[in-house]
Every structure is written in C-alpha cells, then in structure tokens.
Design a protein around this nucleic acid. Structure first.
Lengths: 192, 192
DNA sequence: GGTTGAGTAGACCGATCGTTCTATCTACCT
DNA sequence: AGGTAGATAGAACGATCGGTCTACTCAACC
C-alpha cells in the first residue's frame, strides 16, 4: 500500500488502458510514475502481474458500482437500468477506449495466461450478476435475458470508442429497455 | 501476385489473427512463411502495411460473403438471416478468435494510424450495408435496426472466443430474429 | 545474350524489450 | 543506537524488435 506502489499502479492503469498492453513498456511506466525500476520489481514480480493488478483494479471498481446500484434502487428493473446508464456514461465519457477486459483478451489470446484468466473471471462474475438481477425481476427466462444484456454491453463498449458514442449509447439503452419492457408481456416458454 | 507474396500474406494473416498484431514479429512471419527478410520488404514497405493488407484481405472476404447472401436470397429479411447465420458459423468454427477488426482496434487505438483507419473503414461499410438491408425490408426505422444488429454482432464476436460459443450464437441469432420479427408489428414512431 | 526482377542467404543496425544487479540514502520501529 | 524496509540511481543483461544492407542465384523476356 506504499505511495509509490499506488502511483505505479495508477499510472500503469492509465497507460495500459489508453495505449494497450504490449504497446506500453516498463520504461514508459516507471518514467511516467516517477519511480525507479527496482521499485517496480519490488512490488510486482513482473509486467504480467502489473497487468493483472490493473485488471483487478478495474474489476473491483465495476463490482463496486454494481453493488452501489443494487443498494440504491429497490426494484431489480431499476438496478438494471442504473447499471446500463452507468455503462452508457462510461462510453460517453472522455478518454473512453472500450472495455479494458475485451481489449486485454485481444492481446492475450492464450486461455492459460494469467491475464486472459483475469478477463474470464471478470466476465463470469458480470454475467452471473446481471442474470441474478433478471432473476430478481421474476420475469421468465432470466438466463437468456442476462446473456442478451451482456451481448449488448460488449457490443456497445467495443463500438463506443470507434465512432460517435451518442448513437451507440442510444441503441444500447433502447435495447436494454426493450429487453426489460417487452419481456413483461411474454409467457415462460417463447424464448427471449 | 507472386507466390512468395501470397504465402507471406496468408501466413501473416494466420499468425496475426491467432496471436495478435504486436505479439507476432517479423522474424516469426518470415520463418513460418519460409521466406527471406528481403522478400518481405520487397512486397511490403513495413510491418504496418502487412497488417493493413491482412485486414484488407479479411474485409474483402466479408464483403464477398455479404454479396453472396444478397444474390442468393430474394427477400432482404432472408439476406439478413443468411448474414447472421454466417456470422454464427464463424463463431462456432474452429480457431475462432473474435473479430479481426475489433482486435486490431484494441491494439491500435490511435485514430490516425493506418491500421485503425482500416478498421473504421470496414465497420463503416458494414453498418451501411446492413442498414441498407433493413431499409429494403420496408419496415420502419431501418437505421436503429441496423445499429442494433451491428451491436449484437460486435458483442457476439467479442464474447464468442471467451466462453462456450453455443449459447452466444443462440443469443445472437435469437436477438436478430427478434429484431426482424417483432419490428413488423411496430408503427413508424415508437423507436426500436 | 545481356538485362532485369524476384528470390535466397545472412550479416548488421540502433532501439527497445523485460529483467537483474549493486550501491546508496532515508525514514521509521524497537 | 541499531536495524530493517522502502525508496533512489543507474549500469548492465540477453533477447528481440523493425528495418537496411550486400552478395549471389535463377528464370523470363526483349
């Protein structure tokens, strides 16, 4: 928890997210953080561990936001809406560069690699969390609904940094709303 | 069109797609292709140009498949279904590693970079093509429908290489079908 | 028959990669 | 007062990066 370690992780996160994992070297990180090589290797065994720490940080931040939405809104539908709105805010926000996890997976395809596994872990949690929210709504077929939500999210985050984010956010939020609203008229056996 | 150039581009494409752009070096490419360094630099000014050529190849392949679907099916709805099915087949196929363009954009965030611009070009074409297909159906709001389709596609391709592709394909195809079917009951002014 | 273009083979460039090392300094804890 | 942990500074490691270079071979074409 030393100050140098915090500065290191913070600047590394910024650089990794903005420019990519392989494009950012150790030299850039320590120079930007104003820290020595030895200090980095005191806190992190290697670059891979620094990347994993970066993803862990992002994972915790997102979990915290979902938890906050959970405790703020009473109805599970509203929690889902709040989560969707927070995703849209991210996409609209300055410096948005897509999903940190999808970007990481693109650079680390090997399923056995710690970085790739960190991505898988986060995505597994997210799908379970959003599916649970759909379950809480009491509507039929929460599982395909959760998958549908996650798919829209992935697509929105992937596209949001490549063109004008406004129409992407509009499409995403409308898709989520449709997923939420029109399912209420459905029976339990006609899919999603 | 020399044989060496074709071999070069083909093996480079395979390596780039499977392992990432920055992870694959010139040495690996020429060794795998069984070609000399000088031969590579005779046909491509630099690595960036090789990457762009790889994306151009992928772009042309996809355009050809959409054209084929266009000329095979009579109804625009069926063309859309055929395109969606071909995307699902890709995701299910062996060695699927996500969308080559989204992966490339993750590694080349700079909008001015030729590789990034190639990604943008492909995506711009795809959105226009799919929107045109929705326009041809005569149903209302083809533009948001096209955007919705593209978003589902992006999400499906991003997720398809991270977990079991089967449920992802199911969610994608069901989403497209919903987009196609339930829109027929809508008026012109209630969004998508 | 000579020129030209495409290919092979391989040395070589500077730069950067991630990593390890020694040495010194400083602040805090007992 | 002494010891330890965390930080600084900076040299050095081998490996690899993308790219350039010279020298030689071979086949096709005018």
């Amino acid at each position: 928890m030393s100050e140098a370690r915090a500065r290191l992780l913070s600047t590394a996160s910024g650089l990794f997210y903005a420019e990519g994992l392989h494009s950012v070297g150790i030299d850039r990180i320590i120079a930007t953080a104003g820290v020595t090589r030895a200090t980095l290797y005191r806190h992190f065994p290697g670059k891979d561990d620094l990347v994993v720490a970066y993803l862990t940080l992002a994972d915790e931040a997102i979990r915290a936001r979902v938890d906050a939405a959970r405790s703020r809104d009473a109805l599970p539908e509203d929690v889902i809406r709040t989560v969707a709105r927070s995703i849209a805010d991210d996409i609209r926000g300055p410096g948005f560069r897509g999903c940190a996890f999808l970007n990481a997976a693109a650079e680390y395809p090997d399923p056995a690699h710690p970085v790739h596994r960190a991505v898988l872990g986060h995505r597994q949690w997210f799908l379970a969390a959003i599916t649970e929210l759909f379950t809480d709504t009491g509507k039929p077929d929460p599982e395909p609904a959760g998958r549908h939500f996650a798919m829209l999210r992935d697509g929105a985050m992937a596209a949001g940094c490549l063109t004008d984010p406004e129409p992407i956010c509009a499409t995403f939020l409308r898709g989520v709303e449709g997923l939420l609203e029109y399912r209420s008229g459905l029976g339990p056996d006609d899919g999603a």
